Amino acid sequence: MQPDGELRGDGVHVGGDARQRFYDSRGYGRPLGGNAISLTPLEAAHLLFRGDLGAVTVDGETLGFEAFFVHAAAAGDRFAVRFLVYSDLRDRGFYLSPTREGWPGHNRQGGADADFIVYERGASPPDGAIAHRLRVVGERESIPAAGIDGTTLAIVDEESDLTYFETQTADPTGGTDYDPPADLAGVLLEDRVVVWDAPAGLYDRGFYGRPLSGRAATIDGALQLSLLEAAYLAERGSLRLDETLALAGTTDDANGAGDEADDAEGTADAIRRRGRTVEGDRFARRLRTYTDLRERAIVPKTGFKFGADFRTYLDVETVEDLPHSEHLVRVIEPDHAFVPRELSLDVRLAGGVRKRMVFALTDASSIDYRSVARITP
């Protein structure tokens, strides 16, 4: 015969041999002294669901699983979606502790905004090795980007299917060793810069820009730079805008730099202004990210084909022997909140093209990276 429980305050009291039966052997609840334990309503519902608990008395009424589930769900706290995740992980062989005050593991969140501590298989509360600090999210909830570091997200969609995402702080580093020359001269067009006589290494080894080339081309060495690439090179003192190279009659409108482009600072300012004109405030954030990645010896290239800001190459020796790009990077503001569907789309696409999804949280003055990948616990 299975034991019964009684709802007392915010916990379900179970007596008899409950400690040995549920806590010591299977990691449910918290000890109360002697052999009694207290279960969270979620734990109690799961034991009712499995038939390991007979019933729960609530205000003098004896409730089976269905009635108790409805009662607990009415109290809120995302009970239904949390129950789905709890049951799924229990079925996968994990012990879990709710991150509730007084329950085993509640003080082991490590700063994460977690619903459960999930222990490694074979480990149990309260001191077992931790596999996941798990946060449960419904499909229509929002997820603050700044708060996902180190948390495993369990997203429950409208049909009660579960998807798990691993999140962590990223510290990307590369091994690309190329210093651009300091005497590049270019022309600022509407949304890019052309360097007419670029040294071969700028593209072949630094992977800057894209050559103007073709079977019938008569011009050799012309290289188109994005505004981000051009701004970065100008800020390094490698690029200046040369008015003498601009088309006649387009000096002010097309080049947009004037006399101030004669020096690197003026060039950089002119290109940044053009970037703000064509892209708004996002340009400064994307430039901050581009610059940081280059300073980490990583080559960022456009991620447009993948719906991202950048794809990245960690170790470029020559473009002819280009390695596979490792990451997709999307630039977001630090206070950005993900919609789960948005997060799922980004991560699924990155995984589909054998890359890892990285989000760059930046306000154009500071930057932090978060890496997200889909996992199967």
Rank of each mutant, 00 (worst) to 15 (best):
V137T: 04
S160F: 14
D157K: 01
S142C: 08
G102W: 08
G102N: 09
G147R: 03
T167I: 06
N107E: 12
L134A: 10
V137W: 01
V137R: 01
R140W: 03
T167C: 04
G150T: 02
R133G: 04
H106S: 11
P172Q: 05
V156G: 06
V137D: 00
Q109C: 00
I130A: 05
I117T: 01
T169C: 00
R121M: 11
Q109N: 02
N107P: 05
D179W: 09
R140G: 02
I143T: 02
G122P: 02
I148T: 04
P126I: 12
A114L: 02
Y178A: 06
D177M: 08
T152R: 10
D115C: 09
A182F: 09
H106L: 01
R135E: 01
F116I: 06
D171E: 12
E139C: 05
D171Y: 11
R140D: 04
V136Q: 00
P126A: 13
E158F: 09
T169K: 13
A145W: 07
A146N: 02
T173H: 14
I143C: 06
P98R: 01
P181L: 12
T176Q: 10
T176G: 07
A129V: 12
Y119G: 06
R121Y: 04
T167L: 00
G122K: 06
F165W: 00
P181W: 08
P180Q: 05
F116T: 02
S160N: 15
G122R: 06
G175L: 15
V156S: 00
L162Q: 15
P126K: 10
R135Q: 09
I155R: 05
E139Y: 12
E120D: 13
T151M: 01
D179E: 15
V137L: 01
H132A: 10
L134W: 11
D157E: 07
I155Y: 00
L162I: 15
